Computed example of a mutant assay.
Amino acid sequence: MSSMSSTPTPDQIPIEEQPVLEALVSIKHRLTAIKKDRSRFIKTSAVMAHYDELSVQLQKLEEIRGAGNSTIWGYRNNVNNVLDEVFVILSLCFMAVGKTKESPATYVQLLTIKAD
């Protein structure tokens, strides 16, 4: 059976998803740095810029995995794991800048409810 027809395992990242993974890791590191910097307030514009960048990467991921296909999220790999981490940090940043009613801010709240 060729690797093209088999279902990837969580530690396998398809080559076409590598640029998305690298961009997500970069976003994660930058958001983490913003969140940890206690010397200044988090700027809404910085958070929104990262949100916009994340949206672009989500569109690319949907295109790669076949938007409209019901199995797009049918398997998890490390791209999904990093994406989850980015959403959590972004959600916390949204709450920190007072955008608590916007959908990105609710992500971490929903995870908390799901965990209970």
Rank of each mutant, 00 (worst) to 15 (best):
K99C: 13
I27S: 03
G98S: 08
I113T: 09
L61R: 05
M95S: 14
D84T: 13
M48C: 04
G74E: 04
E62K: 12
M4N: 08
V108H: 12
L83M: 08
I27G: 06
A46W: 05
L110N: 05
D84R: 15
A115F: 11
V25S: 05
A46R: 07
T100D: 14
D116Y: 08
F41G: 13
P8N: 03
E17T: 04
S39G: 12
V20N: 08
Q57F: 04
R38I: 11
N78Y: 03
I89D: 01
F94W: 08
N77Y: 02
V88G: 00
Y51M: 08
L31V: 04
T44H: 09
A115K: 02
V20L: 04
A33W: 02
L61T: 00
D116A: 06
P10S: 04
L24D: 02
M48F: 02
E63P: 00
V56S: 10
L110T: 12
L54N: 05
R65G: 00
L110V: 15
M48R: 07
Q18N: 06
D116H: 05
V82A: 02
M95C: 11
T71R: 15
I34W: 08
N69F: 09
E102C: 07
A67V: 04
K99Q: 15
L54S: 03
Y75I: 13
N77W: 00
A49S: 14
S45I: 12
K35F: 11
G74I: 08
G74Y: 10
L31Q: 12
R40Q: 15
L24V: 02
Q57N: 09
I113V: 15
V56C: 07
A33N: 13
T32K: 13
K114G: 01
I72Y: 11
T7E: 10
Q109L: 15
I89S: 02
M95R: 15
E85I: 04
S3M: 12
S55G: 13
F87Q: 10
N69I: 05
T100C: 14
D116N: 07
V88W: 06
S39F: 11
S6I: 09
K36N: 13
D116R: 07
K36T: 03
A46K: 11
F41M: 12
A115L: 11
N78F: 03
A33I: 01
I15V: 14
E22N: 15
A96G: 05
N77V: 12
P14V: 04
I15R: 00
S26G: 10
Q59N: 11
Q59P: 00
K36S: 10
F87S: 03
A105Q: 12
S91H: 09
T106K: 15
E85H: 09
E16P: 00
F41H: 13
N78S: 09
G68W: 14
Q59M: 07
R40Y: 05
D52K: 01
T9S: 05
I34M: 15
N77K: 01
M48I: 05
L110I: 14
D84E: 06
V82Q: 04
M1S: 12
L21D: 05
I13H: 01
P10G: 02
E102S: 10
L90A: 05
S2L: 12
T9K: 01
L90T: 03
K35Q: 13
E85A: 14
I34C: 08
V20A: 14
I42L: 13
E63C: 01
V88F: 10
D116L: 09
P104F: 04
D37K: 11
A23T: 05
D116T: 10
